[in-house]
Design a protein around this nucleic acid. Sequence first.
DNA 1: TTGAAAGCGGTACCAG
DNA 2: CTGGTACCGCTTTCAA
Lengths: 349, 349
Amino acid sequence: MPDGAEGPGAVTLHDVAREAGVSVATASRALNGSARNVRTENASRVRAAAAKLNYRPHLSAQAIARGQTRTAALVVGDVADPYFSAIAAGVTEAAEAAGLIVTMAVAGRSPERELEIIRTLRGQRPRLIAVAGSRIDGAATRAALSGELEAYRSAGGRVVMISQRDLPFDTVTIDNAGGAYQLARALAAAGYRRFALFRAPVTVRTSRDRCAGFLAGLRELGLAVEDRFVVETEFTRAGGYEAARRLAERGLDGVEVVFAVTDVMAIGAMSAFRDAGLVPGRDIGVAGFDDIDSAVDVTPALTTVAVPLREVGLTAMRVALSDDPGPVSVQTSTTVLLRESTPLRPRTR
Amino acid sequence: MPDGAEGPGAVTLHDVAREAGVSVATASRALNGSARNVRTENASRVRAAAAKLNYRPHLSAQAIARGQTRTAALVVGDVADPYFSAIAAGVTEAAEAAGLIVTMAVAGRSPERELEIIRTLRGQRPRLIAVAGSRIDGAATRAALSGELEAYRSAGGRVVMISQRDLPFDTVTIDNAGGAYQLARALAAAGYRRFALFRAPVTVRTSRDRCAGFLAGLRELGLAVEDRFVVETEFTRAGGYEAARRLAERGLDGVEVVFAVTDVMAIGAMSAFRDAGLVPGRDIGVAGFDDIDSAVDVTPALTTVAVPLREVGLTAMRVALSDDPGPVSVQTSTTVLLRESTPLRPRTR
DNA sequence: TTGAAAGCGGTACCAG
DNA sequence: CTGGTACCGCTTTCAA
């Protein structure tokens, strides 16, 4: 009985039923259905047969028969980025607690790819789709994305956006503006007056919100950032490094502290300053945003705004699994953490 | 026509066929099958209908009809750990390039959980299962795990183990012993003679291999690590911190350099030394293993053994997708990187 | 080239 | 409590 190179194929419920000497209906009931209605003896025969044959129900077949799957889909920008991986940890934790399998896709910070991914994911018919995406305004793809998600939702799916408030779906946001606002005040209170700002292109929402909050905080205190000290760069460690390198090269010219819109960028910046012969925390203050794990491991420890990323993931799942109808929006709060990278800076007035 | 709160449900191929005025068979062929055999006009009518209705094929239904899925399953110990997330990045990249959807599960370093996960995953009938698992010897669960994977394979699935050589499946290993061996020699060449070793419980293979390699490297040079300087601790940052704290507390007593079996532990150790008033790189050398991103961002930059983690993930997928039959074993090589945490240590002889 | 129909692996209703 | 059977959404013969 040649089976081809693929082997005998997987054991099916029919095999189990035959082995146990019952009908597939009974086998199905014993293994999954409301086990109540099957005679104890038969039930154990079926379980024994299943164990003997090492049977696992075909989830796709169950999905099709039951009309719903037990999977949760997650879209992230980049798994290797600690920002996303912390969120992913929260999402998977909650999903597994709810008995859902997680399928994860990486959008690589491109809106087009994100759209394509969501199209594919929709075919999975997951219970929910959580998008912790590229957070980029792409006017063209935005509408398509929204349409795709809308179609998914109207077919009974749940959508939750993480850190993207501007689409009409459930949302878990991070208080980017508020956190940056508080950071600005804290830095000012610590004695800083002359600031530089390292940010991503304006199309990146997160960056924009953090900048806006920071500037608003300063403005309220009668402070500002000179245009020439606002550096646009990539949203990565390399981007932060490059921005700091450029700044150091042309001279700090009085700048006392740099706010980089993410920790990853801030850490890159610290490295560049050091390479340029400047000591972060002494010659130049550095602050970031996110409080990723390594923020406490760099020297000096990085001042930042803590975002409860894992909890954001958990919350997103909770929202998506609740049966609350209307688009809910949950904002998670942030906390300013002043550390050694921005020591007190006593000023004579 | 009440549809319930769930909405109208997803559009099916029947809907598309009706809309296009053709049979489902034709619609199926136009959308997926070998498009050759369908009249151009019909094909475009079908595509138009599909677009109009925003149709996405039900992947589960396709899977069941075709007898195979287009998913790849990945098991990791902890997404938030940079070691695993770097591997995951490689795996997802390769999977998406091959048109596969990735489902990811987190085993949380527990062999029992890992086993349970693989059981569930098997129900998904993925094309392959990649396990970058807890790397723990659990005698009891080991057999069960192996049996589960064996059943999966004999049903036509592909299994690839990452960094676990001891099961009879395709394997991508990291040269843990060799890397640690080279590190030992490099440290000795840099002038170090008195070593401490921070390691995980012996049940953790990776830790064991790295220790063995390190000790072998020393032995060849007539060196050794005193038992009292071998500290067993947790396989985490906190574990490294704790080990270093204990060591600093009872006095370095001549120890010149610590080898912690992972960067994450090494970074925790650095932090503890610093808290104890010791300057890493000056008062005590520190070396790790993995070369995670933050290894270059800590101060002093961490001496370590670089492991091409992303590439390990890519390789694992390549192996799993190849049609090579027998259990293949690919070993990825490692590179010693001496950085400022272990400066040259001139000795008078 | 096309449509009817037989599955794929389960679930669940409906009679016994 | 149990078995027969009609689906679930899609693919793929088989005839027409």
